[in-house]
Computed example of a mutant assay.
Amino acid sequence: MKNNIMEQKVGVGIIGSQFISSIHVESLKQVPEAVIVAVMSPTPGNAKQFAETHNIPKYFTQLEDMLALEEVHMVVVGAPNYLHCDITLKAAKAGKHIVVEKPLCLNMAEADQMIAACKEAEVKLMYAEELCFTPKYVRLKGLLDSGSLGDPIIFKQSEKHDGPHSDHFWDVERSGGGVTMDMGCHAIQFFRWLNANNPVVSVYAHMSTTVHRHRTKGDDNAILILEFENGVTAIAEESWTKLGGMDDRAEIHGSEGVAYADVLQGNSIQTYSNKGIGYAVEKAGNTIGWSFVMYEELWNYGFPQEMAHFVDCVRYDKQPLVTGEDGKMVLQIIQAAYESAGTGKKIKLPFNTTIDRPYKLWKPQN
């Protein structure tokens, strides 16, 4: 899309009708410069029901039909991982700007195709990493950038709950891997953003499948250690086995100070429920029992701010904070992590492989 649309709202098409697409819609409703035009889902009845629930005027079961709408300027891809590449190629060809949920895709070949197609079509490829917009984490980065913490030494980030909400996450052929693909990608981009995209030079990882062996061949627990060129060490802890709802926190240790940020605790309502909590992000884990209920939950996670930024990039032809190239680099680091977990060795970057699914580097196929 080469024309400037500064004088009009950005028309958005939603691709997907499940958990993450609901978050996208609720977030976009808080962006005055955007208007949700249509939703598309191939599953019969899903798009219609989603459109009725969210008051979206048009719905489709065929992607090409939605992409044919001139009033759609940007699409937001909330489909399973294995569909990201094909959807992006078709959307780019149709001249639509594209927001892709994490992870960007399944492998480096797909990432290269997606980036090349968007460059050729002169559309923006934006990578949806909400941790770069999460208010507590934005403040954490501000403390680091101001010099209040001195030189960065160690970063830590953990995200834990009791497992994915949709079946495709459990299927490694559709998802590409386990918790590292699902949530480790958050930590990796978060670390790169904190560290001004300083290059990652090595990755060491340990992964296991401890609780969900009956549901997945993927990892349900992972610890990743990233070394940056400037000497910073970053440690990610990711789990699908933590009971009691979502846990999301980060730390920065510097030469002159330390800072801790917990997304859910400190501005939440500690709650016990026998039925479970129906809040959007809390659906990522089972909330029966104790959990932390957020006010302005989506805002606290940064989703509306993320969508407002991407809409602004489309309106005013700005460079996105998180791009397709960032998504590709995250994927390369994820692949290196699976290779490290499979070999027990530290993996130097850049790491090149032609494997089609990252989990195969950890559990080679017979």
Rank of each mutant, 00 (worst) to 15 (best):
K2N: 12
I5R: 04
I5W: 01
E7H: 11
Q8A: 12
K9G: 07
G13D: 02
I15S: 07
S17I: 01
F19N: 11
S22I: 12
I23N: 01
I23H: 00
H24F: 08
L28R: 08
V31A: 05
V31I: 03
V35F: 13
V39W: 06
P42T: 14
P44W: 02
N46K: 14
N46T: 13
A47K: 10
A51W: 13
Q62G: 13
L63Q: 12
D65L: 08
L67S: 07
L67K: 05
M74S: 04
V77W: 00
V77N: 06
V77I: 13
G78F: 00
G78I: 05
A79Y: 07
Y82V: 03
L89Q: 00
K93L: 10
H97I: 03
V99M: 09
K102A: 08
K102D: 07
C105F: 07
N107R: 07
E110K: 07
C118S: 08
K119I: 13
E122T: 10
V123A: 08
K124S: 06
K124P: 04
K124H: 15
M126W: 02
A128F: 11
K136Q: 06
L140G: 04
K141S: 02
L144D: 00
L149D: 02
D151L: 10
P152C: 01
I154W: 01
F155K: 03
K156R: 14
E159V: 08
H161Q: 07
D167A: 12
W170Q: 11
V172L: 02
R174C: 05
G177T: 03
G178L: 04
W193R: 00
L194E: 06
N197A: 10
V201G: 07
S202Y: 01
T209Q: 00
V211Y: 15
H212V: 02
H214W: 09
T216F: 01
K217F: 07
D220W: 00
N221D: 14
L226R: 08
E229H: 15
A234Q: 03
I235L: 12
A236V: 03
A236H: 01
E237K: 14
E238K: 04
S239G: 03
K242Y: 14
G244M: 01
G245K: 13
D247G: 11
D247A: 15
E251L: 15
E251T: 12
E256W: 14
L264Y: 01
G266Y: 02
G266H: 09
S268H: 07
Y272P: 03
Y279F: 06
K283H: 10
I288E: 11
I288P: 05
S291T: 15
Y295F: 13
E296L: 13
E306L: 15
V311W: 03
Q319F: 04
Q319M: 15
V322E: 11
T323N: 10
G324A: 06
G324M: 01
G327D: 00
K328R: 09
I334Y: 04
Q335S: 10
G344S: 03
I347Y: 01
K348H: 08
N352D: 05
L361I: 03
K363Y: 15
K363E: 06
